[in-house]
Design a protein around this nucleic acid. Structure first.
Lengths: 231, 231
DNA sequence: GGTCAGCGTAAAGTTTGCGTAAAGACCGCA
DNA sequence: TGCGGTCTTTACGCAAACTTTACGCTGACC
């Protein structure tokens, strides 16, 4: 059974050292390699540079809200996330799962069950496989993980929102993304009607990418609907 | 977000009628369609012929071992299976998960959490199966996701309403679409009587597609009724 | 053969939506 | 506390899209 469930790189984001040590041993005995992070910020860094196959995330971190960590990671990767928490509240579970987590286990947990749930998440690895975290459109390249944009060899410096928009378009690979969708994803649901924000931001991006809306190299306007990347 | 998490066909394999009824209502309120099976044997049949998007499986079936059902299904399909059980034994969970189940929820369960876990399983659907959102009619091709229309290799630039109309016809694949239907879908219910709008727009589309109403290549007029795409 | 309903086209009038500029508010950081 | 960058807000020109009005054509029916 489970041939490719063995020997994965697992990133463990957990602030309590004893639990981290315990899990490291448990994971090791199951044949996994462990990367460790003691805070949300550190976890995000390691997720980018450590290239893990799966992330185990404790919700009760000191520096960040766990759900925010999930959303951050989901903004550039679909790699499996198993959330660990002492909180057994239903609302908490639902929120974490809807933020993008793939499973939720309540502490204290049974080690065997945890390992079984990891196997479930890992055996999907083969199927969906390695989507590249960098998108190419002609001379334009968008590195979702490093938040780096280049045209040719020229690095383009985008602001946070500008990058978020471009990344969203890039992740949809040439398909149309509606105004509403961009606004809710980038500005939040409260700003679905602030269309001019979007127009101005798109204007800035085009300006930096040296893109002409009349005959676009990269970003195409679909009047009344939204934007899409040329593919 | 989660656009394709809504409205799934869910096969419910559960022998206790009250629980089945309860779940059917809960799933229905979440926008899902439900198929029902009262035994393992029946469940396997329905899984084959019912074309569900997800299966909820009770382990405590009278005729078969639940894990055997999971293995049967896994032998020909990778569709998501959520196992439901009163047994809280760790060994049981591990066995079911390793047999191929994707998640395991213990009865009694919180409805909200169950629905959230279903969303997790369903949102993977869209990624993997890259829906073919493009319709072909002879040399005409309508890409619904990219909002792109081509005739041969020539890209045709349509306005918003023009594209909406053509997309509506394309989605109905050669079947007749009434005036009323087009007007309500594209202009809104307030304009069901403004038939001339439609005629003019159709005229523009035909013009751009180089289509002659007298001997149409693409759009056929059904006098007094509506329009349809030639197939 | 006349009339009329339904369709298609042309062209003028009006509104909407897009893009840009610029100024003010905000925020993190030194 | 001041500074630079970022985001928000306001305003406006312009072009495309949409609406409105008008008219010619065809075929059916009387």
């Amino acid at each position: 059974m489970t041939p490719n469930a063995a020997s994965a790189r697992i990133l463990l984001i957990e602030d309590e050292a004893p639990i981290r040590r315990f899990l490291k041993i448990a994971l090791g005995s199951a044949g996994h390699e462990t990367l460790e992070a003691g805070s949300g910020r550190e976890g995000l860094e390691r997720a980018v540079i450590g290239n893990p196959d799966l992330i185990i995330l404790d919700l009760g971190l000191p520096d960040m809200d766990g759900k925010a960590v999930v959303r951050e990671i989901r903004s550039w990767s679909s790699l499996p996330i198993l959330v660990l928490s002492v909180r057994d509240g239903e609302a908490e579970k639902i929120a974490a799962l809807d933020a993008g987590a793939d499973d939720y286990v309540t502490k204290p947990f049974a080690t065997g069950e945890l390992l079984a749930r990891l196997r479930v998440l890992l055996r999907k690895r083969g199927d969906s496989e390695a989507q590249p975290s960098t998108v190419q459109v002609g001379p334009l390249s968008v590195d979702l993980a490093r938040r780096l944009v280049t045209v040719g060899d020229q690095e383009i410096k985008l602001t946070r929102k500008e990058f978020d928009i471009l990344a969203l378009l890039a992740r949809h690979g040439g398909r149309l993304v509606s105004h509403r969708q961009i606004l809710t994803e980038v500005w939040g649901p409260a700003h679905v009607d602030d269309l001019h924000y979007l127009r101005i931001a798109i204007g800035h991006i085009r300006n930096k990418l040296d893109d002409d809306p009349a005959s676009p190299r990269f970003i195409v306007t679909e009047p009344g609907v939204g934007y899409r990347l040329l593919s």
